[in-house]
C-alpha cells in the first residue's frame, strides 16, 4: 500500500463528530428569530439542539409554520405530521396553509435558513441530494429543489465522506443535481466550511483534526484564513 493510502486509512479510523454532534454544531448557525426549514436526516435532529437563548420558527413544507417538538407517545395526531410524516406538535400562534403557499415561502426567499442533507456538494456550492446513480428505484425530489432555489441561506449537513471513504465535497458533482450554486455553508463530521466566491473556506475543524487532514478527505481545495479553530460544542 502506498504511504498516502495508509495515511488516508488511518484518517478514516480517527474519531469524528456523531450525527447528533453535526446537528448540534449546525444549530449554532441559526440566528434568533429566523424562519427555518429542516430537511430529512441529520438536519431533522437540529430542533433538539437549539441554544436556549434563541427562538426560531420552524416551517414544514407540508403546510405548517410554527411547528413544535415531535409528539410524545399518546400525543400523536396523524393529521398533524411534519414533512417526514412524523407526528409533531405546534407552538402557540402556529398556522396551517396549503402546499402552494408552503412553497411560496420556500421559493420566494421567505425562509431565513434551510438545512438539507447532501450526497455531494461542489466547490461552487452545487448540491446533489436526491438520487444516487445506479441505486434501485425512482429516487424522489420532494421539496428539496424549491428549498435550494429559494432559501436566503442554505446549510448542508452531511458526513464528510461516503461509507467507502470517498469525498462528498467535490470539485464537480457527479450525482444528479438538486440546485446550482445554492449552498452557503457545509457542516460535516469533520469541518464547518463556507462556500465563498473565491472557493471553499475552512472555518472550523473537528476536535483533534488539523486542516491538512481534512483536506486529504476533501475532493476540492480548502482555503484557510489564519489558524482554523476546532469545533466547540457546548
Amino acid at each position: 500500500m502506498p504511504d498516502s493510502a495508509v495515511q488516508e486509512k488511518a484518517l478514516l479510523d480517527k474519531p469524528r463528530l456523531t450525527r447528533e454532534q453535526i446537528a448540534q454544531r449546525a444549530a449554532f448557525e441559526l440566528p434568533d428569530g429566523a424562519y427555518v426549514n429542516l430537511g430529512w436526516g441529520i438536519p431533522n435532529l437540529i430542533a433538539d439542539y437549539l441554544p436556549k437563548e434563541i427562538t426560531v420558527y420552524f416551517h414544514s413544507e407540508n403546510g405548517i409554520l410554527g411547528m413544535g417538538r415531535r409528539a410524545k407517545p399518546g400525543e400523536e395526531d396523524y393529521d398533524l405530521v411534519d414533512a417526514m410524516k412524523v407526528p409533531v406538535t405546534l407552538i402557540p400562534g402556529a398556522s396551517f396553509f396549503n402546499q402552494a403557499d408552503a412553497h411560496l415561502m420556500t421559493r420566494g426567499g421567505h425562509l431565513d435558513v434551510a438545512v438539507l442533507g447532501g450526497f455531494q456538494v461542489s466547490e461552487k456550492g452545487n448540491l446533489a441530494n436526491w438520487k444516487i446513480p445506479g441505486a434501485k428505484g425512482s429516487g424522489g425530489i420532494g421539496g428539496a429543489m424549491d428549498i435550494a432555489a429559494g432559501a436566503k441561506k442554505l446549510i448542508v449537513c452531511m458526513e464528510h465522506v461516503t461509507k467507502d471513504g470517498a469525498p462528498k465535497i467535490v470539485k464537480k458533482c457527479t450525482y444528479p443535481l438538486t440546485g446550482l450554486e445554492c449552498v452557503d455553508t457545509i457542516v460535516t463530521d469533520l469541518a464547518v466550511i463556507d462556500v465563498q466566491p473565491q472557493g471553499l473556506v475552512l472555518r472550523e475543524v473537528a476536535p483533534g483534526w488539523i486542516p491538512a487532514e481534512v483536506q486529504k478527505l476533501t475532493g476540492a481545495a480548502l482555503l484557510t484564513k489564519g489558524r482554523v479553530p476546532e469545533i466547540h460544542l457546548r
Partner: peptide, 8 residues
C-alpha cells in the same frame, strides 16, 4: 418527477 412546490 416534479419538484414538490412546482407540482402544486
Amino acid at each position: 418527477l416534479v419538484p414538490q412546490g412546482i407540482l402544486c
